[in-house]
Simulated scan of single mutants.
Amino acid sequence: MMLDIRNLKVSIPTDRGMLNAVRGVDLQIAEGETLCLVGESGCGKSLTATSIMGLLPRYAKVTSDQFDMAGQDLTTKTDAKLAKLRGRDVAMIFQDPTSALNPTLTIGRQLTEGVMRHENLTRKEADARAIEMLDRVGIANPAARLTQYPHGFSGGQRQRIMIASALMGRPKLLIADEPTTALDVTIQAQILTLLGQLQVDLGLSLLLITHDLGVVAAIANDVAVMYAGRIVERAPAADLFATPRHPYTKGLLAAIPVPGVTERGSALPAIPGRVPGLIGTMAGCAFRDRCAIAGPECAADPVPRISAGGAQFLECAKASEVAA
């Protein structure tokens, strides 16, 4: 198992009280697997990824019952432990390459800095690897591009550079946080194809975070659906699209227009209500106030978890009615 996290919690102090942004997440990723973590904005996807990397600010409280990554127990995640893993065993592609790349440093400097620290490579050796990675991600004339600055590249090229940067340390686990959000549809497809090919070529495990279910259909082995800080359903991608079992998942999929079926100009179905606030404690199913079939049992704590074998599960007190 490349990543095995149990009962991950992330809490952030605010003026109004403690914001419990991630509320007991279980996340397992096998070697070579692509897991897509999906959900609407604000559900805790990016916080989950950032906590895995150990990049949250010190005032954030992060706890877990189990935290195994790349064969190492990181339950007590010291800065020194995580610094050795970041870039070498696990790497991350951030949402916005424009802000993630330093405009005052050359591309070559930004690509080689981490690998020179982790592997004690010479400048020449690090530059050679940077050229190799830029070529692998489709940057033309990579040797000449090392001396250029980020503003000299298009948005799609900057995203490719971010992928090359993440691959410099030859990690086993790659976390991609909304890697296609700021790109047009054509470039999105190219980046997804690139990620899929790199995963096969390099044997990567991939955690892809997105709110775009079209992206999920194109690349995922398994899908974990997140709502209000918890994963409410996990299933193989084909099963999830064919027979969604959680009411929230059904609502998300119902809102996707279907070519040839959805009438042009018609209103798409919407999930009623609002996402609950996450300040303070919360009992029962967080989706119950928006769910058409919710009953008194949905307020009970903990919410029943129905296992479907392996890492697949569903959290819903009304699972049998959803299936019917």
Rank of each mutant, 00 (worst) to 15 (best):
A217F: 07
P259S: 14
D89W: 12
L198T: 01
L253Q: 03
L121P: 00
F67W: 15
I163L: 07
L173Y: 11
E31G: 14
L268K: 07
A255R: 04
G39C: 04
A189I: 07
L278C: 07
A182C: 11
G54E: 08
V25G: 03
I279Y: 13
K45R: 12
E263C: 05
P57L: 10
G309N: 13
L121C: 03
M53C: 11
R145K: 14
G265M: 04
T63Q: 14
F287H: 06
L146F: 12
G39W: 01
M92E: 00
N7S: 14
G277K: 06
G265K: 04
A317T: 13
Q157I: 02
Y227V: 01
E125Y: 00
N20T: 06
G17P: 09
C43E: 01
L174M: 14
R86P: 09
L208V: 10
G152Y: 05
Q199P: 08
P302K: 08
N7H: 14
I219R: 06
I219H: 09
T122F: 00
T50M: 15
L268G: 10
L207C: 14
G295C: 10
A292C: 08
S46K: 12
R129K: 09
E178M: 07
A140Q: 14
G138H: 04
A140S: 15
I163E: 04
I279S: 13
A21M: 04
P171M: 09
I219C: 09
T281E: 15
L198H: 04
I279P: 14
H211T: 05
E40G: 03
L278P: 07
L204A: 09
L192H: 08
D289R: 14
E233H: 04
Y59T: 12
G284C: 13
Q312G: 08
D135V: 05
I293C: 12
L111M: 09
L121G: 01
L268D: 08
T75Y: 07
L101R: 06
H246G: 01
A294P: 12
Q190V: 11
A317E: 11
D65E: 15
A242M: 10
L252A: 04
T112I: 02
L204M: 13
N141C: 09
C291M: 13
I256H: 08
E119F: 06
G196F: 06
C298L: 12
R6T: 08
R145G: 05
